[in-house]
């Protein structure tokens, strides 16, 4: 008899561990999110411009670095290896954590924006106040919860758009549609409305 530990699972142990690069990228990206989380709990950052820039850059760089490492040594082609083995993409614990966190974020965003630091008659606090400098730059007013959300959404579309472009580099249709989504989100859904608000303002 073989002494091998025979798992009865139909799915075995595919390579799903992260490379060193991906671990570092995850550290960078999550530290960017960490800054936002601290801001939510009303940690006051002395230099908002600096810390917001660090946070958004860290999220972007972390995501791009992580995906670059995932696809750089692969040939163009369909890249779904192992998705049903990974907790995050097969309704495992990480998938549930991500789902609950996002749902919670949307509930707070829509119904309890004051927990994000929205103050209607006075200076913003919390994470919304962190976005004040950027909001003032674009539309001339302090940030709202929608500005925070719009910025994060745009960052996600751009960073994950780059990931998508690498993943689907064999497919011209997917590349074009991704570039289109990235462009229209950044220009038409984010920057132009903000600038128009400034023109309309006074």
């Amino acid at each position: 008899m073989s002494t091998l530990d025979k798992s009865m699972a139909l799915t075995g142990e595919p390579p799903k561990s992260l490379s060193t690069n991906q671990k570092l990228a995850a550290l960078v990206g999550l530290s960017g999110l960490g800054i936002l989380l601290l801001a939510i709990f009303n940690v006051t950052f002395p230099n908002k411009v600096l810390w917001l820039s660090i946070s958004l850059s860290a999220i972007t760089i972390g995501t791009i670095w992580f995906s670059w490492d995932a696809y750089t040594n692969k040939l163009p082609g369909i890249k779904n290896d192992g998705v049903w083995f990974k907790s995050i993409s097969s309704r495992g614990l990480w998938g549930w954590i991500a789902g609950i966190a996002l749902t919670g974020f949307y509930i707070v965003l829509y119904f309890y924006p004051e927990y994000l630091g929205l103050v209607s008659d006075g200076d913003n606090k919390g994470v919304i106040s962190l976005f004040d400098p950027l909001s003032k730059l674009l539309n001339g007013n302090p940030a709202s919860q929608w500005f925070v959300y719009g910025t994060l959404y745009t960052v996600a579309i751009l960073a994950f758009g780059i990931k998508f472009l690498w993943k689907y580099r064999h497919n011209r249709y997917e590349r074009l549609r991704t570039i289109s989504v990235m462009f229209f989100q950044t220009a038409f859904a984010f920057i132009i409305p903000e600038l128009m608000a400034r023109l309309n303002g006074h």
Binding site: L10, T11, P14, N80, D81, V83, W84, F85, K86, S90
Partner: peptide
């Protein structure tokens, strides 16, 4: 694709 993790059985 089951072995490759693209699908479950």
């Amino acid at each position: 694709y089951v072995y490759m993790g693209h699908m479950k059985f």
